[in-house]
Design a protein around this nucleic acid. Structure first.
Length: 649
RNA sequence: GCCGGAGUAGCUCAGCCGGUAGAGCAACUGAUUCGUAAUCAGUAGGUCGGCAGUUCGAGUCUGCCCUCCGGCACCA
């Protein structure tokens, strides 16, 4: 057992108690060396923590989730110590364990770059090899402050000052290094073996862009070497799914300097885009939405009335003509209110659901642009529902059902939900907010959907639910949304006549399922690694000839497939079948139909799937039957029963 | 926008201490008519992201700008 296990500051000698480490080591001497920490009556503590005879103590090992987290957190300390040694004067921010690793935010006297990482990592390994004991000390606030003050840790002092009155204040020491930290940590730095520094980034102190930008160093740490290897392999695999790479490979779209954040859709990509759009168009129509289309440019005065000129100004592209100022629409809602405002509306017309696939532009900060996932020009599957307060709940419920059914059709199951409630600055009285928040939460709960509550994160005009999907690197992107709006309709003068003949302002629900089509298609591509389900594949089947003698037959096959509504073409190049298969496979074409002399004479094709299965020689009728059946979108609602358009216009 | 990195042929990338640009694949031409993931040979292809500057000389050094990549903040 490493000598570091002998408890020091929190002395078991004084209390007459043994340390958790000692007890665990005694219980299982053979495996003592791998124990990182102890679970004492359910709480994870250092091995040096004292235990009473009646305490329940269980070991925490590197393979446990809690053990891994400790490894990562201690690795962050190791990083900080290396930085303090290499760059005296370095100030520490925060250094937590995160998914797959850890980071530390620091302020260094000299700027760091990627090239410094190997040197820092080397120092970390040296400190780890020294197997320095890691010791916890509990201090009074005054002691902690003077310690941090004397070490010039201004950021730590700030954290210290904000700790609650009754907080236990602890520091951890290893060698000359000391860090304000709650712990727990590994018993000695020798436990830290499998780690690697990965990247360098800037990060605002406390996540506040008005404050200093610190240097964030990211690392990854694991229990075993093979876990690290697996992690690196996972990253490499993720890179292969990158939608930007697939977009080029599959000839779907491109981006170029002259149009940052705006997509050039190529023929195949646009086929996919239209398939997605038409699918949603169909679903919305089933569910009683009316599609409209409104101008892309609107006079500044409208944006002033809507409040966008004030709230959204920096994100709007503007242009002018004959002394008039126009803004390119960043969203469709004000225009939809204009449609609502034509003529006198009756409560009988509500809920009125107006949908639009309108092109919107937002001047996003340059640093945020990211392939299809964050663009400046995009189309949302946008709609606004004008309704009465009583209709909020059923509308939200119907929307969520529709959303999940759409996500299911596209093959998404991993969906995260966030509910954002009233912010400090808001419009509308609290009774309305109570009702709206309860309606949203109630619908989610009744449907048994788990969600993260984000208090205070709602829009100033209403609470919202956000639905997010993940990209290949696990980054979460918001797609669907349901936002209640008590503000805009009134602001733009929308009203309807109630049953009693009085004028009332409608509630407006902003909602989207896919969010932007661009983003959704990006996530979709990564989700399937480009191997799209047949109904979405831009090209569903390619007809590959063995020799030029089959050219005419191949053309006739294409004609038959096209007549059956399939997307296909013939590859008549004078190339070997192996090359054609390779290239068309890399393009992610789901079915390859090989035709040679035998198939021609029997009116058939030899069918090969994208994943390399050879289905053998099938007749053309058979193939058309199989493919057209598979090419139908997966929509249980689509079986003809949909009678949906409910609005009474 | 901020921090760090990068931008060389269509793609992936090499190019040392400053001396006038290179590979593989793709393209093109020719040959090959071939049975389930790369047929062979030849040819051509570059304002080295842009603009200034230093220098006898800049892909290489300096400055400014643009774009992209990874984060942060923001956000569909």
């Amino acid at each position: 057992m490493p000598r570091s296990h002998a408890p020091q500051e929190i002395s078991s000698r004084e209390t007459g108690l043994r340390s958790a480490g000692e007890r665990l080591a005694a219980a299982e001497p053979a495996r003592a060396a791998e124990i990182l920490a102890a679970r004492i009556n359910g709480t994870i503590r250092d091995l040096a923590a004292p235990v009473a005879p009646e305490d329940e103590v269980a070991p925490v090992r590197p393979g446990d989730p809690e053990g891994l987290e400790i490894l990562r957190h201690s690795s962050a300390h190791l990083l900080a110590q290396a930085l303090k040694e290499l760059y005296p004067g370095t100030r520490l921010g925060v250094g937590p364990a995160i998914e797959d690793g850890f980071y530390y935010d620091v302020e260094t006297p000299v700027p760091l770059s990627d090239e410094d990482l190997p040197k820092i990592e080397e120092r970390m390994r040296a400190i780890a090899r020294a197997a320095l004991p890691v010791r916890r000390e509990e201090l009074t606030r005054a002691q902690a402050e003077s310690l941090m003050n004397e070490r010039g840790e201004t950021y730590k002092l700030e954290i210290l000052r904000e700790l609650p009155e009754d907080a236990v204040i602890s520091v951890y020491r290893q060698g000359d290094f000391v860090d304000l930290c709650r712990g727990p940590h590994v018993p000695d730095t020798g436990r830290l073996k499998v780690f690697r520094l990965t990247k360098l980034a800037g990060a605002y102190w406390r996540g506040d862009n008005r404050r200093a930008m610190l240097t964030r160093i990211y690392g990854t740490a694991w229990a075993r070497e093979e876990d690290l290897e697996a992690y690196l392999t996972r990253l490499a695999e993720a890179e292969k799914r990158d939608h930007r790479r697939l977009g080029r490979l599959m000839d779907l779209f491109h981006l170029q300097e002259e149009a940052p954040g705006m997509v050039f859709w190529h023929e195949r990509g646009w086929v996919l885009y239209r398939l997605v759009e038409d699918y949603v168009r169909g679903r919305l129509s089933e569910h009683g939405y009316a599609e409209v289309h409104t101008p892309m440019l609107l006079d500044r005065s409208l944006w002033e009335r809507s409040g966008h000129a004030e709230k959204f100004a920096t994100q709007m592209f503007v242009t002018g003509s004959e002394n008039r100022e126009f803004a390119v629409k960043p969203m469709n809602c004000p225009a939809h209110v204009q449609i609502f405002n034509q003529g006198l509306r009756s409560y009988r017309e509500l809920p009125l659901r107006l949908a639009e696939f309108g092109v919107c532009h937002r001047n996003e900060p340059s640093g945020t642009l990211h392939g299809l996932l964050r663009v400046r020009s995009f189309v949302q599957d946008d709609a606004h529902i004008f309704c009465t307060p009583e209709q909020i709940e059923p509308e939200v419920g119907a929307f969520i059902d529709l959303l999940f059914s759409v996500y299911r059709d596209f093959g998404f199951e991993d969906i995260t939900i966030k509910l954002s409630t009233r912010p400090e600055a808001r419009v509308g009285d609290d009774r309305l907010w109570d009702r709206a928040e309860q309606a949203l939460a109630g619908v989610l709960e009744r449907k048994g959907l788990g969600y993260d509550l984000q208090p205070g994160e709602g829009a100033f005009y209403g609470p919202k639910i956000e639905f997010s999907l993940r990209d290949c690197l696990g980054r979460v992107w918001q797609c669907g949304t349901m936002q209640l709006d008590f503000f805009l309709p009134a602001r733009l003068g929308a009203s309807y006549v109630t049953e009693k003949g009085e004028k009332e302002t409608p509630v407006m629900l902003h909602r989207a399922i896919l969010g932007s089509l661009e983003r959704f298609i990006g996530v979709l591509l990564e989700h399937y690694a480009g191997v799209l389900p047949l109904w979405l594949a831009p090209t569903q089947a390619a007809v590959l000839t063995i020799t030029s003698r089959q050219d005419a037959y191949a053309r006739s096959v294409v004609a038959r497939l096209e007549a059956a509504g399939l997307r296909t073409f013939a590859d008549l190049r004078n190339e070997k079948i192996g090359l054609k298969i390779r290239e068309r496979t890399l393009e992610r074409i789901p079915y390859l139909l090989v035709v040679g002399g035998q198939e021609e004479s029997s009116g058939s094709v030899s069918v090969r799937t994208h994943d390399g299965r050879n289905l053998g020689v099938l007749t053309l009728d058979n193939v058309i039957d199989v493919l057209t059946r598979e090419a139908r979108p997966r929509t249980p609602q689509n079986d003809g029963a949909a009678g949906g358009r409910e609005h009474r216009l």
